[in-house]
Amino acid sequence: MATGITAYVFDIQRFSLEDGPGLRTLVFLKGCPLRCAWCSNPESQSTEPEFMYDDLRCTACGTCVRACTSRALTVASDAAPIIQPGLCDFCGNCVTACPSGARWICGRWISVDDVVTAIRRDVPFYRRSAGGVTLGGGEPVWQPAFSLELLSRAKDERIDTTIETCGYGDRESVVPLLMAADHVYFDLKHADTNRHLELTGASNETILANLSLLLVQHGDVTIRYPLVPDCNDQPGDIAALAQLLLGLPRTPRVEIVPYHRYGEHKYRLLQRHYPLSGITVPGSDDVQGVCHTLQHHGIACEALTL
């Protein structure tokens, strides 16, 4: 583990184009309080390290089994190696041993210094595009000390900052953290408290309270609403969303993020069941319809394209 303030991160992606203004580096923090059924980054949810394993690349050569010093891996002939939970200490020997790169660990501890070093690689591109760094995930609010420190370091180097958040957490840590970012993308998943609980595993009461506080103080907050068929796309859902938005201290702008299936394969890599299999992607007419409904209520709204 690195020294100083560290975070648990699963990816750092350069040249991100849709996570705030300009060209950005997106730091994906691992660990999220919600469990949305449609999550396209399922490896971001757990605060524990996780294996991703690609059975299409695996040649069942057995090298990983031989490399494992904890005897956590077993393999039947020609079949996928199986990890015994509890025995594995995530030492990573099997990952570096695997000749075909079929196995990797999601999640690593990384210090603020190292993240800043990674971010600096693209500074010329931020300067030219008014871009910067975006904290996403997972949930940046779930690791507030690190996130706050990183934002402050970025600010010291005049690097623009964005946070993507679900807004769930203690007011005392959430609001100051979000206030420290130049731009905030704040997710709303459903207006109805009970439906929210069903779909994400948590109530939206804390989230809405945090949002109200934030809107009073922060000038650049965008709501992102994932539009998921059968979950939150019905006329009643949208009407409730409009009412909720209009009832806030200030009505923020909204971006509709249409549900996509680009994350589905990650469930296979995590050897998990995909909860939404069979749901179709919303048509562009449906997405535009939702936009128009919200605009009709006087809410600034646009749809992201896929």
Partner: peptide, 21 residues
């Protein structure tokens, strides 16, 4: 790479029908 908001993955890893999309 397939890049959409808050997400990224590699095209060749996607399901065939998602690729078609």
């Amino acid at each position: 790479l397939v890049r959409v908001a808050g997400y990224s993955a590699y095209f060749t890893l996607l399901h065939r029908d998602v690729q078609e999309d």
